[in-house]
């Protein structure tokens, strides 16, 4: 009977211990995820930096700039895609370390925009075959999520399609507002194809396909 009397309390202590253990594991996993993300972003920064140096080298000593640009696109695209996926998964979970998350998200957006400028440059100076989509979305908006699905499917099917997602209402990074005013974004989702075609609202796969071809 004595055991039973304290059962509620002992169960509570046990539950709190298990729960605290769970929170600790979650916190550790968050750290691990943050480290992994940071590593990806660092890699992307290094790639860009190395590219800039190589570009200066070619300017100075001569060489094929377009070949260099082309060789960098694939590596950077992969890094940005992976980082974006990790960030969106992390963002869904209301992480314990929101400050880390905000910092990494901002870094990611800067990397994306830098990559976008490189692609634009590649297209203008080398006339490459890449199709670039700037996708302006709104967090927690159903139509944006659906547009994301469509773009995900498309990027799986088209190797030359590069999709860069920008949170329309991300206010921490002034560069986002610059892009928004540059392309006159008023609704979400909006997609900009190759800096020229603007498609507003939920857009079907067929519409995008006809625009990129």
């Amino acid at each position: 009977m004595v055991e039973k009397k304290y059962l509620l309390v002992t169960s509570l202590i046990l539950t709190i211990s298990v729960f605290l253990g769970g929170i600790f594991i979650g916190w550790t996993l968050d750290h691990y995820r943050a480290d992994e993300l940071l590593e990806n972003i660092k890699q992307s920064e290094l790639t860009t930096e190395s590219f800039i140096v190589e570009e200066s080298f070619i300017d100075h000593y001569g060489g094929n700039r377009c070949e260099l640009l082309n060789s960098r696109v694939y590596a950077m695209q992969n890094l940005i895609h992976t980082t974006g996926e990790q960030l969106s998964k992390w963002g869904e979970g209301d992480s314990f370390q929101s400050r880390d998350f905000d910092y990494l998200k901002r870094k990611y957006i800067i990397s994306e925009i830098r990559f976008f400028i490189l692609l634009d440059d590649l297209q203008n100076s080398c006339g490459s075959d890449y199709n670039t989509i700037l996708y302006f979305y709104e967090k927690d908006k159903d139509s944006s999520a659906k547009q994301g699905h469509v773009l995900d499917e498309l990027s799986k099917d088209y190797d030359d399609l590069i999709v860069l997602s920008i949170d329309r209402y991300y206010s921490d990074e002034p560069l986002v507002e610059l892009l928004v005013s540059e392309y006159g974004i008023t609704v979400t989702p909006t997609i900009i194809i190759n800096s020229k075609i603007k498609l507003e609202g939920l857009t079907s796969r067929a519409q995008i396909e006809s625009a990129i071809k």
């Binding site: 699905h149 469509v150 939920l202 857009t203 079907s204 796969r205």
Partner: peptide, 13 residues
């Protein structure tokens, strides 16, 4: 509902 909409958008999830 999402499945129907996405199918309408040309995606077969």
């Amino acid at each position: 509902y999402d499945w129907i909409i996405l199918t309408g958008l040309g995606i077969y999830p």
